[in-house]
Nucleic acid binder design. Structure first.
Length: 405
RNA sequence: GGAGGGGUGCCGGAGUGGUUAAUCGGAGCAGUCUGUAAAACUGCCGCCUGUUGGGCUACGUAGGUUCGAAUCCUACCCCCUCCA
């Protein structure tokens, strides 16, 4: 039954398609499809977790279809209740706009701008009347909305669920009606909202959209979905070095997923990687280096990927000091024979390299701070101009000494 | 409108007048080990400080009782459950 023409498109990195046959039919019809992708401008940064879905969109675009990017300037006010905490600070129109702009800049690193239509929810919700609200809400029951897993869980465990949150899926669904979506894309956590869009379209005399769900990428912590608020994410605008390093820090068990979801590595190759890992015939680290390279290359370029790899090898595998490290000025009390007595605390605190004095003491006590490779035990050190200070694993700085009188 | 339960540090969650900066778990940070993986072990994990010590801030908010409060009282705010 697998349609060979759409094999990879509909199989690789796809969690679920509702309804697959209908989507295949649509693809075969040769019509230019309207692919809906929503975005709430509450946090502008795109990370690798989003990329899985965006790459799919891109693949559809390459077949000639059109992406409709819906900027959720109204739903952002509610906040997607998929997480735990319900209330988020309201954003000002300026913030929304700035976020949307940043988002789009990143969005079009993956998506073809020429085949994209950008729509703001305020186009339609800006003129919504109570009459419209009542008509919209009358189509659904509490039970229907409580069927959604996270509402249900919160409700039955006695946590608050606000009325506006219940509205969220309705608004998202209505977006599909307005833009006449043929297919809506999202992570598996979007399933409920997307399905509700199908019902709404049908009840308003439109054909129901198909729902294309991609798996949620697990974050660098190896256990939870990648998200900015969990701080386990790799943003697509990170520096090559950061990006490379973060990919290297993911657990081995995620390597294959990452290859599948966010790289172009051919299926056969990935299958081979899998086999090699299972039989232990390859050091997973080498696969991970390959993965990190691919990813950096995708969002920067090949040269950047090579350099990031060199940097990684140098610093973390050979334990050397990086080439370009930031220089900070430290004030010395006095000097004798080329050595300055310096208290490193004020500068580190001022530059926020350590959070507080207590933190600094803790780091010192635990041997986390080195000067020229020697562990320090107090913040008062004898240093020469140009000495290298290392704080924790990854923070290096060069000391420029400024002698006070 | 009525009855009851609850708001504790990043999160979960103990603690019901003093030895509580607050048990415990998770997250996080650091060290050892290593492949900046996993696992493991160790230490830290509010802020300031003259650091085997001292001070400040903190248990929804504001007051009060007390030598002393997260713990008692009053008011207020918020959340949950049940009844109407």
């Amino acid at each position: 039954m697998i349609d060979l023409r759409f094999g990879t498109l509909l199989k690789r990195g796809v969690e679920e398609i509702i309804v697959e046959q209908e989507l295949t039919k649509l693809l075969e019809s040769g019509r230019c499809l309207r692919l809906k992708q929503g975005f709430d401008p509450s946090s502008p940064d795109i990370h690798l977790g989003h990329v899985a879905g965006l790459r799919k969109l891109r693949q559809f675009q390459d077949l000639g279809h059109k992406v409709i990017l819906v900027i959720g300037d109204w739903t952002a006010r509610i906040g997607d209740p998929s997480g735990q905490s319900a209330t988020r600070p309201m954003l000002s129109p300026q913030e929304v706009e700035a976020n949307a702009e940043t988002y789009m800049k990143q969005f079009f690193k993956v998506i073809d701008k020429d085949k994209t239509e950008v729509r703001w929810q305020s186009e339609w919700y800006g003129r919504f009347t109570l009459d419209d609200v009542i008509r919209l809400t009358s189509k659904f029951t509490i039970a229907q909305l409580l069927a959604r897993e996270d509402f249900n869980r919160r409700y039955s465990s006695g946590n608050p669920v606000s009325l506006t949150e219940l509205l969220y899926p309705l608004l998202q669904g209505y977006d599909s009606v307005v833009i006449k979506a043929d297919v809506e894309f999202g992570g598996t956590d979007q399933k409920f909202n997307c399905l509700l869009g199908r019902e709404l379209q049908q009840s308003m005399g439109q054909p129901s959209q198909q729902v294309f769900l991609v798996p949620l990428l697990i974050g660098t912590d190896g256990s939870q979905k990648m998200s900015k608020s969990l701080d386990n994410h790799i943003a697509i605008d990170e520096t090559p070095q950061e990006m490379y390093g973060k990919v290297m820090s993911i657990p081995d068990c995620l390597i294959i997923d990452y290859f599948e979801l966010i790289t172009d590595a051919p299926d056969e190759e990935i299958a081979a990687f899998k086999e090699q890992m299972n039989t232990g015939s390859v050091n997973p680290m080498n696969l991970k280096k390959r993965l990190a390279h691919e990813i950096v290359k995708q969002f920067h370029d090949n040269q950047a990927a090579i350099e990031a790899e060199e940097h990684f090898t140098k610093i973390f595998q050979k334990g050397e000091i990086p080439n370009n490290i930031p220089e900070y000025t430290f004030t010395a009390k006095y000097a004798q024979s080329g050595l300055y007595e310096v208290d490193i605390a004020p500068t580190l605190l001022q530059k926020e390299l350590v959070k507080s004095n207590n933190e600094l003491k803790r780091l010192l006590a635990q041997g986390a701070i080195e000067l020229n490779g020697r562990k320090l035990s107090t913040s008062i050190v004898d240093a020469q101009d140009g000495g290298t200070l290392r704080i924790g694993k990854r923070c290096f700085i060069r000391m420029a000494i400024n002698q006070a009188l």
